[in-house]
Design a protein around this nucleic acid. Structure first.
Lengths: 346, 346
DNA sequence: CTGAAAGCGCTAACAA
DNA sequence: TTGTTAGCGCTTTCAG
């Protein structure tokens, strides 16, 4: 209504001040949380601002306040739905807290230097790193510039970065215990050739608990990447080895789905009758009727919430000591371990 | 090496100038594309900058240049892998072109006002909207502030926004033709109750081509949302109606997968023997062994590339006329229409 | 509570 | 090619 006659220029605080008949400071105060302005002035300013379509210029504000409220979000493989969901959650929560996500997508092996440059160019006041990117360089640089940093599902790395991780040890333990309980005596592992940090933890913990329970690990079968095709590769390796196990622990759900499909299709193998399968993550597909996969759930929303909480705490209290949050995981019993699973009811 | 002794303050151009023994402008010029600096000065500046760990402050630069190079990326349902992949592509391409994505995640029915505010606060110099968000308000505001806007898979909306869309008409046509070719005489449709713009287009075009080909549409079966569960709902409705069709066109892949699973599991229905199924999008899961779904592929990378191209063109040539790009789609023949599909070979 | 003035870090005429 | 200077739009002491 009122803004069509603005002549091509974005209105500034000066314009508002002029129209409201007050000083620029008054305008600034009106839009500053907790500044003291007389109600009358305030109203005049608000009116003027509205009629001009004025909005505070956050770039200028950031420059002046020496604080951007921008948070670097370094995330690799956004096409992975689990990560996408997490990043979605993180972005939402940051916004709720009046921070802004500054998204930096990194390809596999992308040049971290460039990434860091971008973050620093925009004076982010904190960063969250997730995905496969190696955070070493980022951590170093963040430390040098006193930028708080939170890592999700990454190894602990020096005294400057906080960590938020799923309880990978519990996940491994639960997997072993579940397989044991349903009567397995021999189990196999399907994983990525070069496992990431949490995956490695899951496997180690799984192996440890297997030893305690007298579960024999009869083989580890690998795929190049921990995705559907990686699972199929593991399945091929498993078949070549002669289907030697009663149970299978997959490093993550995607691998499990690929493995399941391949074994069923090309070896007529039945799950759970011929092989019990358990995995980690609980992606949406695992609950689908074709798979009905028992898995250990890590909730992306929980991880996101914890990461944001940890980062903001550090930003607001820079002196606070390093934190390492462990996010609980939850066993989702479904058909692939022979458990009845609830059926979608309409 | 050289940056540990900086005393807690980010170095500025002044610091560099002082150390290099030149003026601040010389520093600025050194870091400005295509500015003229004597090689000698330039080297001095570069050295000084490196030794201080100096980086141009982009906030200040943006303020001064009156141009942020920030692009608003309004995206709903980031947890949807298709959208996540697209958004990943867009972000990458923007960065390549020296723009920066400013990501604004919107919940279903999220308040658009707030979103717009955020974009405008940061003076984005362009915006891309995708997902279910209704772009009307955004378009209006962008027009008012002369911010170029590109819509992906959205209806054409006034003279200020550019469009990039998949060829939904071709998709609908191809679906009808494919079903016809494999011998169907009666077909059904599975879709979302409140179809989005492109979905609607697909359906209309499908129906039109069916009429031309003498394919009888015997029913439309709906789910609340176009996801896996929505597909199951459609399946239930289809079963209630008495499995009356030979072919089924699903509005998108997710629905098709849910529909397939439900029909197979609860009605022992075989695909393609009892029902031929074809859908749209070609998400990764469609190629999985359990589904082997014939579908019409829209490539998120293509859409992303076109959207970025269109937006940047408009930014660089504000006067250019509105554009509406149509991105080609491709039929992926697989088992759900009785076509042999290539098998993953290791 | 309010306004004047200095300054955030950088760029871009302008004159030298 | 260089340095000087005047902003970019906002915040924030500091007097009043």
């Amino acid at each position: 209504m009122s803004k069509q006659d603005r002549s091509h220029r974005v209105p500034t605080a000066d314009d508002v001040a002029a129209l409201a008949g007050v000083s620029r400071s008054a305008v600034s105060r009106t839009f500053t949380e907790g500044a003291s302005v007389a109600p009358a002035t305030r109203d005049k300013v608000i009116d003027a601002a509205r009629s001009l379509g004025y909005r505070v210029n956050f770039l200028a504000r950031s420059l002046s306040r020496q604080r951007t409220n921008l948070i670097g979000l370094v995330v690799s493989e956004l096409d992975n739905p689990f990560r996408a969901a997490m990043m979605d959650q993180i972005a939402r929560r940051l916004i709720e807290e009046h921070y802004r996500p500054f998204v930096l997508p990194t390809g596999a092996g992308g040049d971290t230097r460039h990434l860091i440059d971008m973050m620093m160019h925009y004076n982010v006041c904190g960063a969250i790193v997730t995905g496969d990117a190696s955070p070493a360089e980022i951590a170093e640089e963040c430390a040098a510039y006193h930028v708080p940093l939170t890592l999700i599902n990454k190894p602990e790395i020096g005294p400057h970065a906080d960590n938020v991780s799923m309880d990978a040890k519990k996940a491994g333990r639960l997997a072993a215990e579940t397989l044991r309980e349903i009567g397995c005596r021999t189990v196999a592992i399907a994983s990525q050739r070069r496992p990431s940090h949490t995956i490695e933890q899951r496997l180690v913990s799984f192996a440890g608990r297997c030893a305690e329970l007298g579960l024999e690990i009869v083989g580890t079968f690998q795929g190049a990447v921990q995705d559907y095709d990686g699972g199929r590769e593991a399945a091929i390796a498993y078949l070549e080895a002669g289907r030697i196990a009663e149970g299978m622990f997959c490093a993550n759900d995607y691998m499990a789905l690929g493995l399941l499909d391949h074994l069923r299709r090309f070896a007529k193998l039945r799950v759970p009758e011929d092989l019990k399968v358990i995995a980690c993550d609980d992606i949406a597909e695992s609950a689908w009727l074709s798979y009905d996969l028992t898995t250990i759930r890590q909730d992306p929303a929980d991880l996101a919430a914890a990461a944001v909480r940890s980062l903001l705490a550090r930003i607001e209290t820079p002196a606070s000591t390093r934190s390492a949050a462990i996010i609980d995981v939850q066993l989702m019993l479904r058909g692939s371990t022979g458990h009845p699973s609830q059926i979608f009811g309409k």
